[in-house]
Design a protein around this nucleic acid. Structure first.
Length: 457
RNA sequence: GCCGCGUUGGUCAAGAGGUUAAGACGCCUCCCUUUCACGGAGGAAUCACGGGUUCGAGUCCCGUACGUGGUACCA
């Protein structure tokens, strides 16, 4: 029997949900849906110093807006909760302790200053970032280097300490990444990562492994920035005795800056004039607000479609997909290995296509929302007619208004249907009449009006 | 520095030894249009470099270069 597919999206509540984050959630979601599995949301808030109030709620809203509602999460218990790591704090130390007892981890009493001193002291041109590893751990204050009695005393006195993983001296760790194939690392180059922090909170490394196991996660799809720490995670799975329940890993390529180099960041959006967050995010500390794709006028289906195609395609020429189609056609093996530069023009093209393809009925609610802001009233029949005329010329949702406002400025005695009839009947003559009626409106608007009806005639 | 991952037009990309190397975005030209758009028809533009292997390499191997990630009591 194959294990049930269970995947998770595990963001840190540190700010707005960025393009890359949404795409990670999306790939997880698509895979879960396609395999009849579960999609779980887990909040990774183990770093209290980086916690941002409101971020969790924001993440949830983003997922909902995108149509990627989790099957389990802080809002919906699926029997594997709690789904916030801060609420699972008590769980982790047990596992860390068991690793110490088994000789796979040890206590370390070094202060941040000690660590800094070691790094500064050992730093050289050949080794600019010395690690806490087999070469240095005996120089530090830990339960490996200190006499047992002293360790006991330190522990009993409540001396602040962490638990570090004891990285084997020279083992080869090999695993198969679903996207990259076989990847191998030598533990000789890896360091003794902190597992449990002095405040009793686990680090990411301990928490993911414990939680993924407890939550029975079968597949881990996450950003490429985690590839290098996968050997540690794999070792942890084994040392914790879960070797027979290993998940499958797939490391997703990064989304890069359109120009220059590096990962796409919030700054790039501001600099280049496009959103990087799914929805507007207001930093509670600075009060700065950054607009998101939703507020700029993207349809969630288009946003998700665009994201899906950034690093994946189904091998055909099709580019416009609904969420349902994506669910059906997605395959993790076809995800690219290389990072992709984000292209805002192409993103807008996706939105344009989705607006064009949407039935007027689907666009009606958004349209009415926009009209309400403009304080314009009209009955649905007329609105639908207008939508059918203008939607194909709209790229962003606000264009719905830009391309229709003149309909609401015409004399009240005119209705779309009769104007249309008139136009079809006596094209030329009508236009002259139209011009007179619209003498107060700028020529461009009048012309758009004309073209629109002509398209229909 | 070290380790990992990657490299097809400006961008997203198809391609899994033999192709005129798809398609899309953007750009340019033309058509449609009494103006803007939409739409239509064309066009320019690519296999990072160097060695192999092979009758034959974008596709396989090895180097180099470049990019990118990691190297935290952050995730």
């Amino acid at each position: 029997m194959d294990q049930k597919v269970r995947v998770r999206f595990a963001p840190s509540p540190t700010g707005g949900l960025h393009l890359g984050g949404v795409r990670t959630a999306l790939y997880n979601y698509l895979f879960a849906r396609q395999k009849g599995g579960d999609f779980i949301l887990r909040i990774e808030d183990t770093d209290q110093s980086r916690y941002v109030p409101g971020a969790e709620q924001y993440i949830l809203e983003c997922l909902k807006w995108c149509g990627l509602t989790p099957d389990e999460g802080p809002e919906k218990d699926g029997g594997h909760g709690p789904y916030r790591q801060s609420e699972r704090k008590a769980l982790y130390s047990k596992y860390a302790q068991s690793l110490v007892e088994a000789g796979f981890a040890y206590y370390a009493f070094d202060t941040p200053r000690d660590l800094e001193a070691m790094r500064q002291g050992m730093k050289s041109a050949e080794n600019p970032s010395p690690q806490y590893d087999q070469h240095t751990r005996n120089l530090m204050r830990n339960s490996l280097s200190l006499p047992e009695a002293e360790v006991q005393t330190l522990l009993e006195n409540g001396t602040p300490h962490v638990i570090r993983f004891l990285m084997p001296d020279n083992e080869e760790v090999v695993f198969t990444d679903l996207i990259r194939g076989e990847v191998r690392f030598s533990t000789a180059l890896l360091d003794d990562k902190v597992l449990l922090k002095a405040d009793g909170m686990p680090t990411y490394h301990l928490a993911v492994v414990v939680d993924d196991h407890l939550m029975e996660i079968s597949h881990i799809f996450r950003g490429e920035e985690w590839l290098a720490s996968t050997p540690l995670h794999l070792l942890l799975w084994k040392r914790l005795g879960w070797e027979n329940e290993l998940p499958r890993w797939a490391h997703l390529p990064l989304i890069l800056k359109p120009d220059g180099k590096g990962k796409l960041s919030k700054r790039d959006g501001e600099r280049l004039g496009f959103p990087v967050y799914a929805m507007s995010w207001k930093d509670p500390k600075s009060g700065d607000e950054v607009k998101g794709f939703r507020e700029i006028g993207f349809l969630p289906e288009a946003f998700v479609n665009m994201l899906a195609l950034l690093g994946w395609n189904d091998g055909t020429e099709q580019e416009v997909f609904s969420l349902e189609e994506l669910t059906e056609k997605f395959s993790i093996e076809r995800v690219h290995k290389a990072g992709a530069k984000f292209n805002y023009e192409k993103a807008k093209w996706f939105n344009h296509e989705h607006i064009k393809q949407s039935p007027a009925e689907d666009l009606l609610p958004v349209f009415k929302e926009i009209l309400q802001e403009k304080d314009v009233q009209a009955d649905d029949t007329r609105l639908l007619t207008i939508l059918r005329l203008i939607k194909e010329r709209c790229t962003l949702l606000p264009d719905l208004w830009e391309n229709s406002f003149f309909f609401f400025q015409r004399p009240a005695t005119w209705d779309v249907e009769s104007v249309q009839k008139k136009w079809t009947a006596e094209k030329r003559q009508f236009f002259g009449e139209l011009s007179d009626q619209f003498s107060s409106i700028d020529p461009f608007t009048a012309a758009v009006f004309e073209t629109s009806f002509k398209a229909l005639a």
